[in-house]
Every structure is written in C-alpha cells, then in structure tokens.
Amino acid sequence: MSEQEQILFARVDNCCYFKLCGELRYTNASGMDDLIERLFSDATPCSQVVIDLNQATFIDSTYIGLLASLARYCQQQQLPKPTLFSTQSEINDLLFGLCLDQAFQIIQQPTHLAPGNVPADMTSIAAQSYSEQEQGRMILRAHQALLDLNDKNKAEFQPLVDLLRQQLN
C-alpha cells in the first residue's frame, strides 16, 4: 500500500473512526477486512461508527461491500446508522447508486468534528498477507453484504457472488 492509500483507525470512547484515503481497491482491502472482523468479534464493540472518505480518490465494489458489512454490524448491534463523510462526487454517485444511503447517514461535507472529538492518534492499518483463498473469501463476503442491502444490488451482484462461490468450492 502506498502512502496515498491508507486506512487510518481510532477508537475513542467506543466510537470507531475510519479515515480511508487514496485508491480503495480489493487488492489493498485486506487490512480493512481484518480490522472489521476484529471489531465484530471484540468484547467491547463500537457504540458508533464514523467513516471519512473525503480523501478517497477511488472505491471499488469490494470496499463498498466492506462498508456495507460495517453498516450491517451496526444494525445487528442495534447501533445508530454509521456516519459517512464524502465530498467526492464520483464516490457519492456510487454510494447513492448502490443505495448505501439506506444504511448510512451520508454527509457530503468535509469532516467537521469538534476539536475534542477528533482522534489525535489514528493508527495506520497495514495490509494483511492473505492467501488467494482468503482474498477470495473476503471479496465474496463483501459482495454478499452489498447484495444483502437491497434487491437492486442483488440483481447486479448475484452473478458475481455465484461465480465467486463456485470458484472457492
């Protein structure tokens, strides 16, 4: 992952902050996937999730699926909808086109958190070394989360999910 492609994370008072920067592709999603898996199994779960995409320049369907899995986690834990900040019009078009506005509170503005609420020490999350099989399972989970959002996504991504399942078996 280059310096421009970063996943930054902080947990402050059980509020989980994600700052995703650069080109967000399945090829560099293993760190995010691993972090989400750890958060889901953590004994002290996040009580709120905030995601900042303002410095993201590209996001693929796997990453969108990882975001959808975060939203599903919040829903399962009966937490408020995650808040997602994005000022990138192309990314916003994709988010709304895939109906993520149903699962997130999307704020199309720069992140303006009160000075006391900004996580000072965000940790950079490193990519994990996934085998081809593990990477395939990550892509499958992400796309399954996307198609679980609504029927439109199901129609769009079901053929890919079926193909991935077939290849992984």
Rank of each mutant, 00 (worst) to 15 (best):
A142Y: 02
A126T: 12
L24C: 00
G31N: 04
D101E: 11
C74S: 10
S61R: 02
G22Q: 04
D93K: 14
E23K: 15
L164W: 01
Q108V: 05
P119N: 02
P110I: 06
S124P: 10
I91E: 01
T44Q: 15
L140R: 01
Q55F: 08
R141I: 05
R25D: 11
L35C: 11
S131R: 05
M32Q: 06
F58C: 13
D60R: 13
S69K: 15
L140N: 00
A29E: 04
R165L: 10
S86H: 04
R141L: 07
A120C: 09
C46I: 07
R141P: 04
S69Y: 10
L79W: 07
T57P: 02
S131N: 14
A103N: 09
A103E: 09
L98T: 15
A56F: 03
D52V: 06
T44E: 15
I91R: 04
L70N: 09
Q128G: 12
A155V: 09
N117F: 13
D151C: 11
F85Y: 14
E90N: 15
D52R: 05
F85E: 04
S30D: 06
E37Y: 06
Q75L: 11
T44M: 11
Q76S: 13
C46D: 02
Q102S: 12
V49R: 08
L147V: 03
V50Q: 05
G136P: 01
C46K: 04
Q102W: 07
D148N: 14
A155K: 11
I51Q: 05
A126Q: 09
Q77A: 12
Y73T: 10
I59E: 03
L66P: 01
P115D: 02
I91P: 01
T62G: 06
A43L: 09
I107F: 14
